[in-house]
Design a protein around this nucleic acid. Sequence first.
DNA 1: CGTCATGTTTCCTAAACACTACACATTCCC
DNA 2: GGGAATGTGTAGTGTTTAGGAAACATGACG
Lengths: 117, 117
Amino acid sequence: MTQFGTYVNTARRRLQEHDRRYSLRQVARRIGVEPGYLSKIERGQVAPPSEAATVRLAKELDQDADVLLALGGKVSSDLQDVIRKRPRLFAQLIRELKQAPDHAILRIVREVRDGDW
Amino acid sequence: MTQFGTYVNTARRRLQEHDRRYSLRQVARRIGVEPGYLSKIERGQVAPPSEAATVRLAKELDQDADVLLALGGKVSSDLQDVIRKRPRLFAQLIRELKQAPDHAILRIVREVRDGDW
DNA sequence: CGTCATGTTTCCTAAACACTACACATTCCC
DNA sequence: GGGAATGTGTAGTGTTTAGGAAACATGACG
Protein backbone atom coordinates (compact mmCIF):
# COMPACT_ATOMS: atom_id res chain seq x y z
CA MET A 1 0.00 0.00 0.00
CA THR A 2 2.79 2.39 0.78
CA GLN A 3 5.19 1.42 -1.91
CA PHE A 4 5.61 5.12 -2.40
CA GLY A 5 7.00 5.95 1.00
CA THR A 6 9.45 3.07 1.07
CA TYR A 7 10.66 3.91 -2.39
CA VAL A 8 11.30 7.53 -1.51
CA ASN A 9 12.92 6.71 1.80
CA THR A 10 15.24 4.18 0.20
CA ALA A 11 16.24 6.51 -2.61
CA ARG A 12 16.88 9.35 -0.24
CA ARG A 13 18.90 7.30 2.24
CA ARG A 14 21.01 5.97 -0.56
CA LEU A 15 21.94 9.53 -1.49
CA GLN A 16 22.32 10.56 2.11
CA GLU A 17 25.05 8.00 2.73
CA HIS A 18 27.39 9.89 0.47
CA ASP A 19 26.02 13.37 0.85
CA ARG A 20 24.52 14.79 3.99
CA ARG A 21 22.52 17.35 2.05
CA TYR A 22 20.06 14.57 1.55
CA SER A 23 18.71 14.61 5.06
CA LEU A 24 14.92 14.52 5.26
CA ARG A 25 14.85 18.07 6.43
CA GLN A 26 17.02 19.45 3.69
CA VAL A 27 15.23 17.57 0.96
CA ALA A 28 11.92 18.75 2.35
CA ARG A 29 13.11 22.31 2.30
CA ARG A 30 14.38 22.06 -1.26
CA ILE A 31 11.16 20.59 -2.61
CA GLY A 32 9.11 23.04 -0.61
CA VAL A 33 7.28 20.98 2.00
CA GLU A 34 7.44 20.82 5.75
CA PRO A 35 9.76 18.20 7.24
CA GLY A 36 6.94 16.70 9.23
CA TYR A 37 5.00 16.16 6.08
CA LEU A 38 7.84 14.46 4.22
CA SER A 39 8.42 12.27 7.25
CA LYS A 40 4.85 11.10 7.15
CA ILE A 41 5.06 10.51 3.44
CA GLU A 42 8.14 8.34 3.77
CA ARG A 43 6.50 6.22 6.42
CA GLY A 44 3.21 5.98 4.58
CA GLN A 45 1.34 7.79 7.30
CA VAL A 46 -0.32 10.00 4.73
CA ALA A 47 -1.24 9.56 1.11
CA PRO A 48 1.36 10.33 -1.52
CA PRO A 49 1.65 14.06 -2.26
CA SER A 50 0.24 16.05 -5.15
CA GLU A 51 1.49 15.60 -8.67
CA ALA A 52 3.56 18.77 -8.49
CA ALA A 53 5.25 17.80 -5.22
CA THR A 54 5.85 14.28 -6.49
CA VAL A 55 7.59 15.60 -9.58
CA ARG A 56 9.79 17.91 -7.51
CA LEU A 57 10.64 15.00 -5.24
CA ALA A 58 11.49 12.75 -8.17
CA LYS A 59 13.83 15.34 -9.62
CA GLU A 60 15.47 15.96 -6.28
CA LEU A 61 16.12 12.26 -5.79
CA ASP A 62 17.07 11.70 -9.40
CA GLN A 63 14.23 9.32 -10.07
CA ASP A 64 11.90 8.91 -13.01
CA ALA A 65 8.89 11.12 -12.39
CA ASP A 66 6.45 8.85 -14.20
CA VAL A 67 7.52 5.92 -12.07
CA LEU A 68 7.18 7.85 -8.83
CA LEU A 69 3.81 9.23 -9.89
CA ALA A 70 2.70 5.69 -10.68
CA LEU A 71 3.72 4.55 -7.22
CA GLY A 72 1.65 7.42 -5.91
CA GLY A 73 -1.32 6.15 -7.88
CA LYS A 74 -1.20 8.98 -10.37
CA VAL A 75 -0.63 9.54 -14.06
CA SER A 76 1.18 12.66 -15.20
CA SER A 77 -1.33 15.28 -16.28
CA ASP A 78 0.49 15.99 -19.50
CA LEU A 79 -0.13 12.39 -20.52
CA GLN A 80 -3.76 12.77 -19.55
CA ASP A 81 -3.95 15.86 -21.72
CA VAL A 82 -2.74 13.92 -24.71
CA ILE A 83 -5.39 11.27 -24.14
CA ARG A 84 -8.16 13.78 -23.52
CA LYS A 85 -7.55 15.46 -26.83
CA ARG A 86 -8.22 12.26 -28.78
CA PRO A 87 -10.01 10.02 -26.31
CA ARG A 88 -11.40 7.40 -28.65
CA LEU A 89 -8.13 6.87 -30.42
CA PHE A 90 -5.94 6.67 -27.35
CA ALA A 91 -8.44 4.67 -25.35
CA GLN A 92 -8.52 2.08 -28.09
CA LEU A 93 -4.75 2.00 -28.40
CA ILE A 94 -4.07 1.69 -24.71
CA ARG A 95 -6.65 -1.02 -24.16
CA GLU A 96 -5.21 -2.90 -27.09
CA LEU A 97 -1.72 -2.63 -25.63
CA LYS A 98 -2.80 -3.63 -22.17
CA GLN A 99 -1.64 -7.18 -22.65
CA ALA A 100 1.09 -6.56 -25.17
CA PRO A 101 4.58 -7.59 -24.06
CA ASP A 102 7.08 -4.84 -23.31
CA HIS A 103 9.16 -5.48 -26.37
CA ALA A 104 6.18 -5.04 -28.67
CA ILE A 105 5.46 -1.65 -27.18
CA LEU A 106 9.10 -0.68 -27.40
CA ARG A 107 9.13 -1.65 -31.04
CA ILE A 108 6.22 0.67 -31.67
CA VAL A 109 7.95 3.49 -29.84
CA ARG A 110 10.96 3.03 -32.04
CA GLU A 111 8.92 2.83 -35.21
CA VAL A 112 7.13 6.02 -34.37
CA ARG A 113 10.30 7.81 -33.38
CA ASP A 114 11.95 6.82 -36.62
CA GLY A 115 8.97 8.51 -38.20
CA ASP A 116 7.88 5.93 -40.70
CA TRP A 117 4.27 6.96 -41.05
CA MET B 1 -15.62 25.68 -20.47
CA THR B 2 -18.83 23.75 -20.13
CA GLN B 3 -18.54 21.64 -23.20
CA PHE B 4 -19.71 18.86 -21.00
CA GLY B 5 -23.10 20.26 -20.08
CA THR B 6 -24.01 21.30 -23.60
CA TYR B 7 -22.98 17.94 -24.94
CA VAL B 8 -25.12 16.06 -22.45
CA ASN B 9 -28.09 18.35 -22.86
CA THR B 10 -27.98 18.05 -26.63
CA ALA B 11 -27.67 14.29 -26.56
CA ARG B 12 -30.48 13.93 -24.09
CA ARG B 13 -32.85 16.27 -25.89
CA ARG B 14 -32.23 14.47 -29.13
CA LEU B 15 -33.38 11.26 -27.49
CA GLN B 16 -36.21 12.99 -25.68
CA GLU B 17 -37.79 14.13 -28.94
CA HIS B 18 -38.67 10.57 -29.83
CA ASP B 19 -38.97 9.09 -26.38
CA ARG B 20 -40.29 10.88 -23.36
CA ARG B 21 -38.46 8.58 -21.00
CA TYR B 22 -35.50 10.80 -21.63
CA SER B 23 -36.72 13.70 -19.57
CA LEU B 24 -34.09 15.19 -17.28
CA ARG B 25 -35.87 13.77 -14.27
CA GLN B 26 -36.14 10.24 -15.58
CA VAL B 27 -32.58 10.14 -16.81
CA ALA B 28 -31.43 11.49 -13.46
CA ARG B 29 -33.37 8.80 -11.67
CA ARG B 30 -31.97 6.03 -13.86
CA ILE B 31 -28.36 7.13 -13.43
CA GLY B 32 -28.90 7.65 -9.74
CA VAL B 33 -28.55 11.37 -9.15
CA GLU B 34 -30.96 14.08 -8.07
CA PRO B 35 -32.75 15.97 -10.83
CA GLY B 36 -31.53 19.30 -9.54
CA TYR B 37 -27.97 18.08 -9.84
CA LEU B 38 -28.33 16.87 -13.41
CA SER B 39 -29.99 20.16 -14.29
CA LYS B 40 -27.01 22.07 -12.99
CA ILE B 41 -24.64 19.75 -14.79
CA GLU B 42 -26.38 20.29 -18.10
CA ARG B 43 -26.22 24.04 -17.70
CA GLY B 44 -22.64 24.02 -16.52
CA GLN B 45 -23.55 25.40 -13.13
CA VAL B 46 -21.45 22.76 -11.44
CA ALA B 47 -18.37 20.83 -12.42
CA PRO B 48 -18.82 17.59 -14.37
CA PRO B 49 -19.72 14.67 -12.14
CA SER B 50 -17.54 11.85 -10.88
CA GLU B 51 -16.13 9.24 -13.19
CA ALA B 52 -18.73 6.69 -12.15
CA ALA B 53 -21.66 9.03 -12.72
CA THR B 54 -20.20 10.16 -16.04
CA VAL B 55 -19.95 6.58 -17.25
CA ARG B 56 -23.53 5.85 -16.23
CA LEU B 57 -24.64 8.98 -18.02
CA ALA B 58 -22.75 8.07 -21.18
CA LYS B 59 -24.33 4.62 -21.26
CA GLU B 60 -27.77 6.02 -20.64
CA LEU B 61 -27.40 8.48 -23.50
CA ASP B 62 -25.67 5.98 -25.75
CA GLN B 63 -22.48 7.98 -25.94
CA ASP B 64 -18.84 6.96 -25.86
CA ALA B 65 -17.76 7.00 -22.22
CA ASP B 66 -14.17 7.96 -23.00
CA VAL B 67 -15.33 10.97 -24.96
CA LEU B 68 -17.68 12.12 -22.25
CA LEU B 69 -15.04 11.62 -19.60
CA ALA B 70 -12.64 13.65 -21.71
CA LEU B 71 -15.15 16.48 -21.92
CA GLY B 72 -15.36 16.27 -18.17
CA GLY B 73 -11.60 16.65 -17.93
CA LYS B 74 -11.04 13.06 -16.87
CA VAL B 75 -9.36 9.93 -18.13
CA SER B 76 -10.94 6.58 -17.44
CA SER B 77 -9.30 4.97 -14.45
CA ASP B 78 -8.88 1.66 -16.22
CA LEU B 79 -6.66 3.40 -18.76
CA GLN B 80 -4.75 5.00 -15.93
CA ASP B 81 -4.28 1.57 -14.40
CA VAL B 82 -2.73 0.30 -17.59
CA ILE B 83 -0.30 3.20 -17.65
CA ARG B 84 0.52 2.93 -13.96
CA LYS B 85 1.58 -0.67 -14.35
CA ARG B 86 4.27 0.19 -16.88
CA PRO B 87 4.78 3.90 -16.48
CA ARG B 88 8.05 4.34 -18.32
CA LEU B 89 6.92 2.40 -21.34
CA PHE B 90 3.53 4.01 -21.73
CA ALA B 91 4.77 7.49 -20.90
CA GLN B 92 7.32 7.19 -23.64
CA LEU B 93 4.79 5.83 -26.12
CA ILE B 94 2.14 8.44 -25.44
CA ARG B 95 4.56 11.35 -25.58
CA GLU B 96 5.88 9.99 -28.83
CA LEU B 97 2.38 9.76 -30.25
CA LYS B 98 1.37 13.19 -29.05
CA GLN B 99 1.95 14.72 -32.45
CA ALA B 100 1.28 11.69 -34.59
CA PRO B 101 -1.61 12.02 -37.01
CA ASP B 102 -4.75 10.01 -36.33
CA HIS B 103 -4.19 7.58 -39.16
CA ALA B 104 -0.79 6.64 -37.86
CA ILE B 105 -2.23 5.75 -34.48
CA LEU B 106 -5.05 3.85 -36.09
CA ARG B 107 -2.56 1.88 -38.10
CA ILE B 108 -0.78 0.88 -34.93
CA VAL B 109 -4.04 -0.14 -33.32
CA ARG B 110 -4.76 -2.38 -36.26
CA GLU B 111 -1.29 -3.83 -36.32
CA VAL B 112 -1.50 -4.69 -32.67
CA ARG B 113 -4.99 -6.12 -32.96
CA ASP B 114 -3.88 -8.33 -35.83
CA GLY B 115 -1.30 -9.58 -33.37
CA ASP B 116 1.87 -9.36 -35.38
CA TRP B 117 4.34 -9.27 -32.55
C1' DC C 1 28.31 19.85 28.17
C1' DG C 2 25.73 22.39 25.16
C1' DT C 3 23.78 23.17 20.88
C1' DC C 4 22.74 21.96 16.42
C1' DA C 5 20.59 19.05 13.21
C1' DT C 6 17.83 15.10 12.53
C1' DG C 7 13.52 12.61 12.26
C1' DT C 8 8.84 12.30 14.40
C1' DT C 9 4.30 13.31 16.59
C1' DT C 10 0.03 15.70 17.32
C1' DC C 11 -3.23 18.79 16.05
C1' DC C 12 -5.30 21.58 12.91
C1' DT C 13 -7.40 23.54 8.42
C1' DA C 14 -8.64 25.66 3.95
C1' DA C 15 -10.28 24.40 -0.26
C1' DA C 16 -12.18 21.28 -3.53
C1' DC C 17 -15.24 17.50 -4.70
C1' DA C 18 -19.57 15.29 -5.27
C1' DC C 19 -23.47 15.50 -4.19
C1' DT C 20 -28.62 15.76 -1.50
C1' DA C 21 -32.94 18.05 0.08
C1' DC C 22 -36.59 20.50 -1.05
C1' DA C 23 -39.32 24.16 -2.39
C1' DC C 24 -40.73 26.62 -6.61
C1' DA C 25 -42.64 27.83 -11.16
C1' DT C 26 -44.13 26.01 -15.45
C1' DT C 27 -46.04 22.96 -18.75
C1' DC C 28 -48.43 18.77 -20.32
C1' DC C 29 -52.48 16.48 -21.21
C1' DC C 30 -56.76 13.93 -20.23
C1' DG D 1 -59.17 22.76 -14.61
C1' DG D 2 -56.45 19.87 -11.93
C1' DG D 3 -53.12 16.38 -11.04
C1' DA D 4 -48.79 14.74 -12.86
C1' DA D 5 -44.59 15.59 -14.68
C1' DT D 6 -40.95 18.80 -16.03
C1' DG D 7 -36.99 21.80 -15.34
C1' DT D 8 -34.72 25.18 -11.95
C1' DG D 9 -33.04 27.79 -7.72
C1' DT D 10 -31.15 27.97 -3.09
C1' DA D 11 -29.00 26.12 0.62
C1' DG D 12 -26.47 22.98 2.90
C1' DT D 13 -23.80 18.41 3.78
C1' DG D 14 -20.13 14.76 4.23
C1' DT D 15 -15.67 13.44 2.41
C1' DT D 16 -11.26 13.82 0.47
C1' DT D 17 -7.10 16.30 -0.71
C1' DA D 18 -3.03 18.35 0.42
C1' DG D 19 -0.89 20.04 3.24
C1' DG D 20 1.07 23.69 7.64
C1' DA D 21 2.57 24.80 12.63
C1' DA D 22 4.73 23.74 16.37
C1' DA D 23 6.48 21.02 19.79
C1' DC D 24 9.07 16.77 20.89
C1' DA D 25 12.80 13.21 21.35
C1' DT D 26 17.26 11.60 19.78
C1' DG D 27 21.77 11.70 18.42
C1' DA D 28 26.15 14.01 16.57
C1' DC D 29 30.07 16.33 17.60
C1' DG D 30 33.13 20.21 18.50
